[in-house]
Design a protein around this nucleic acid. Structure first.
Lengths: 194, 194
DNA sequence: CACTATCTTGAGCAGGCATTCAAAATCAGG
DNA sequence: CCTGATTTTGAATGCCTGCTCAAGATAGTG
């Protein structure tokens, strides 16, 4: 075993300052925030940023998956607490849309811009898996029309994410998405609640 | 009256070459195509481009409104030939979506990126006016649900345009849009066809 | 305290794009 | 053909990014 020396304290501090600044900038301006700005906000030079994280993708991976993961787990918990597949799917969809439109960074993350941030992709996979499972449940239950597929869900979410990222899109896009989702439910679920 | 000298022939030729090259580049790559490339394709220097058109917006205005106007007039004619308000509105929507997704330049134009290309904005206004009128007709006819507003139509078109511009959006976005539109029709139009 | 591995620095390189303008080239009237 | 007005040229400027690396600064061990 190669006895590796402990890292210097100042280096650890700088990394921490960079993570903090990066998180703020990312949440405020999206994952394409200026690396210069992040370094400046951390009170550190741009070279140090590259030393520690190797570039934008490394910095993203070091900072965003935690936040996104937490939000997704929170949403999953809320979904899990609901009684019917329909309620669960609907809550999931609305929750995902709120995540995407509330925060440029999460939007970038969920829409897989920056595909080189691999840790982030893993987190995203969790959410798409959950969405697919909820669609299957709602199909089995009969509350969701068979014509609305798992891929349709992902398309719908992608559409919403793209719309919410672009300030030029009229706010009414939400009504259009709502209409698409509302029309996907069946009149008579197979097993009705008592 | 100030007797203005006739413009030089080579200048007119250069302007024509630039328009031709610009049209090709715009249609292929969108309205943010490189001005250098356009000048190069026209066999002319970048300075000449600025001399004639003053910059990107001038060039856009000199070239795109014709094409877009023609396509829109063609669509309007097709719409006009149809019998029912429902057929007309549906054809209009699908036609607009095809225009937007078939061509990056028309997409940029209809989504009003480059708001300084004023001649282009006028053409766009024509199409939104037509859309609004078709919605009103379909409301009067009773075939379109009153819950689907004129603004909803514009939101839907904007959503489709944004989606079709971004290669990352899954192709299934069309199904989502279809669903939103399909669910907007009423079961029983007030005046049925014989 | 001295010394070295570790870490930081920031100027510098590369690449992209828009825009300008003094000098050179060119057209066309006389 | 000459001449002057028109037009063209393209290097230069400015601004923005990402990324590198030789040189200097610093921590912490012995």
């Amino acid at each position: 075993m190669t006895a590796t020396r402990a890292p210097r304290r100042d280096a650890r501090d700088n990394a921490a300052k960079l993570r903090k600044a990066a998180l703020e900038q990312f949440l405020a301006n999206g994952l394409d925030a200026s690396l210069y700005e992040i370094a400046r906000a951390a009170g550190v030079s741009i070279g140090t940023l590259y030393n520690h994280f190797g570039g934008r993708e490394g910095l993203i991976d070091a900072v965003v998956p935690d936040v996104l993961g937490a939000r997704l787990r929170e949403l999953a918990a809320r979904v899990d607490a609901l009684a019917t597949p329909k309620q669960r799917l609907e809550t999931f969809v609305r929750g995902m849309i709120e995540l995407q439109s509330g925060d440029p960074a999460l939007n970038d993350a969920l829409l897989r811009r920056f595909p080189d941030a691999v840790a982030l992709l893993d987190i995203c996979a969790v959410s798409t898996d959950l969405g697919r499972a909820l669609v299957r449940d709602a199909h089995r239950d009969g509350s969701l029309s068979p014509g609305f597929t798992e891929d349709d869900l992902l398309s719908l979410l992608w559409l919403a994410g793209t719309a919410s990222r672009d300030p030029a899109v009229p706010a009414g896009w939400r009504r259009v998405i709502d209409r698409a989702l509302d029309s996907a439910w069946t009149a008579e679920p197979r097993t009705a609640e008592p």
